[in-house]
């Protein structure tokens, strides 16, 4: 275990993969590795890619990665798909669009299930960003689950957030109104080979005009045909512009601080929940309180206070 952190820092693929698994499983072994790598993090630029299902997020990530690799940069990819709330299983299919990146040792791809987290991310995503960062990746690209409307957690982790839409989808614009509007640093209308691009762009622009009054930066709208590698270089330039803007306005440090805040809260939340629901601590007590609530012998607030009272004593 001692040298798993050291090997992660060397960029060893198996050690990276193993530490991710430990973190994802909430193993106590993960913490000691994570503690050791933290001093070596902070260099990777994190790009979040979100958008409606099937809009081309994975294909865009593939093309972006190809372009970054041409520049000699190393790329980590986290591809998140929904975990079934019924079985706990997940079908992780984003790699289908990234096939030939598998054998490039300057690229590390990890597919993850949401494992019960809402918001489009997964609980261990902060750990995985740190691990990929520490392993020497210049960029970490995070693909969220295909969004409906409330999955906006990606801004907690990304330096630049890309929101991907497609033409001809009335709901696509609906989605934006429902909350995605606030999180986009760059809009992408992908599948620009399809009918209705101009209209989609125009609708977006008008929404932005309404929302951006008073802001010092207008959210750009780009069109891409990811499948044909069109618009990718322009997208990379726009990401670079956003990065410069963040640094100039000191928003970069504020964003990073937000990420660490979210990470800290998540670690505490996870540990606290594990502590309360562990067999060796309060699981029995919790179960019996639930029974009492069911029988109206106690109310949920009193029950919660009883548990919390034991921890906070």
């Amino acid at each position: 275990m001692n040298d798993i952190a050291a090997k992660v820092l060397e960029g060893d693929q198996r050690s990276i993969a193993r530490l991710i698994t430990l973190a994802e499983n909430g193993s106590p072994l993960a913490a000691s590795g994570m503690k050791k790598i933290h001093p070596y993090t902070g260099n990777a630029y994190v790009i979040g890619i979100t958008g409606v299902m099937g809009s081309g997020k994975s294909t865009l990530i593939y093309e972006l990665t190809k372009e970054y690799r041409r520049k000699g940069l190393k790329v980590g990819i986290i591809a998140i798909d929904p975990t079934s709330p019924f079985s706990g299983g997940a079908l992780l299919g984003d790699r289908i669009r990234m096939m030939d990146l598998a054998t490039d040792d300057g690229v590390f791809i990890r597919s993850m299930g949401t494992r019960g987290m809402l918001g489009g991310l997964t609980s261990a995503v902060y750990d995985v960003v740190e691990i990929l960062d520490a392993s020497g990746k210049d960029l970490v690209l995070v693909e969220t689950v295909g969004v409906g409307q409330a999955e906006v957690d990606v801004i907690k982790i990304a330096d630049t957030t890309l929101v991907v839409l497609v033409p001809g989808l009335g709901d696509s614009i609906q989605t934006i109104k429902a909350g995605i509007m606030e999180i986009a640093d760059i809009y992408i209308v992908n599948k620009a080979d399809r009918f209705g691009v101009e209209q989609a762009v125009a609708e977006l622009e008008s929404l932005i005009d309404i929302a951006c009054t008073g802001k010092d930066r207008k959210t750009p709208v780009l069109t891409t045909v990811a499948k044909e590698n069109k618009g990718i270089v322009e997208l990379i330039n726009e990401i670079e512009n956003h990065k410069k803007h963040l640094k100039k306005t000191k928003m970069f440090d504020a964003k990073r601080r937000k990420r660490y805040e979210a990470e800290l809260v998540e670690i505490i939340r996870k540990r606290l929940m594990n502590f309360i629901f562990d067999e060796s601590t309060f699981k029995g007590k919790v179960e019996s309180l639930i029974d009492q609530i069911s029988k109206k012998e106690v109310d949920p607030y009193t029950a919660a206070e009883e548990i919390l009272g034991k921890i906070l004593k």
Binding site: T83, S84, S87, G88, G89, A90, L91, L92, G93, R95, I96, M99, A102, S111, G113
Partner: peptide, 10 residues
């Protein structure tokens, strides 16, 4: 997946 596993499909 329905049996609770995480399946990476390539």
């Amino acid at each position: 997946r329905d049996a609770g596993m995480e399946v990476v499909y390539t």
